[in-house]
Amino acid sequence: MRVVIPLIAVIILFMLAYFGVEAAGLQTLFGVVFPYIALVIFIVGLIYKIVRWAMVPVPFRIPTTCGQQKSFPWIKPSKLDNPSGTLGVIGRMALEVLCFRSLFRNTRTEIQKDGPKVAYASNKWLWLGGMAFHWSMLIVSIRHLRFFTEPVPGVIIGLQDLDGFFQVGVPVFYATSIIFLLAVGWLFLRRVVSPQLRYISLANDYFPLFLILGIGTTGFLMRHLMKTDIVAIKNLTLGLLSFNPAAPAEASGMFYAHLFLVCVLFAYFPFGKLTHLAGVFLSPTRNLSNNSRVVRHINPWNYPVKVHTYAEYEEEFGEKMKKAGIPLDKE
């Protein structure tokens, strides 16, 4: 159910847009109204989420230290894995966000029952899949800026040329399109094939995967199999940007379905786990330096607690202490 319902949901969403345009002529709804709504939900929702997080204090300095602390000049500290200052934190976070450093550490644990023996093997597949997915999605998104700019900046054209470097097919296949689809497919497959992952996965995990897979597939189909009117699309996007939109009838149902799935992704974004995009920057185990013995960290809601004072202690044990010859305050 956790797999099927999200899959059906995405298929229904696709059909809504496809037939809404092809059969009912709802171009304006899917081409103008939904994109604006989705964008507003995305921006407002994500900002709201981040502000809500940022408003919650960080009472204690609790980085996870993954290397040697800074102590003596003759012991080399691990500046990135156990940062003692802001520069180290920036480096650590950059490696985390750009290279998925923690995932790179991933191992697979196996138990051989004879012995028994516990064995650890390097396991970089998740790291590789994650890197391939996120980076190719970023590049695909940047490539899409060609639909939103006129004239198209040289950087984007350059990136596009680089991406289509191998000059295979007409129109040219982009390397990132292929990598993107393979990576999403792999991330989906491991979820259903691995028994543990299947066990922990929720509909909330499958839904964005299917959504992204749907977006990728429709995009791929439009570029390579089902031609669509690019000029009409570009008129729409530029119109949207200049707040003077008109949904063209020439663009295909496939295009509107693609666009609608993107809208759903944007609107869904602030509500679920996709907010990890922003949350990772605020994660206290990664964005704090390990300097709590050097600089006092302040807890804004630190409150007085009931303690057992020395006076109370001596009150109870004073006689025994005196007998044992332990010095007392009350003498």
Partner: peptide, 22 residues
């Protein structure tokens, strides 16, 4: 409302499973 860790850790887990056998 007191621990950013708690709030964020409730929100952003993607269930990638990297922690499972650790």
């Amino acid at each position: 409302s007191r621990y950013r860790t708690f709030k964020i850790f409730m929100d952003i887990c993607v269930r990638c499973g990297a922690c499972a056998d650790k």
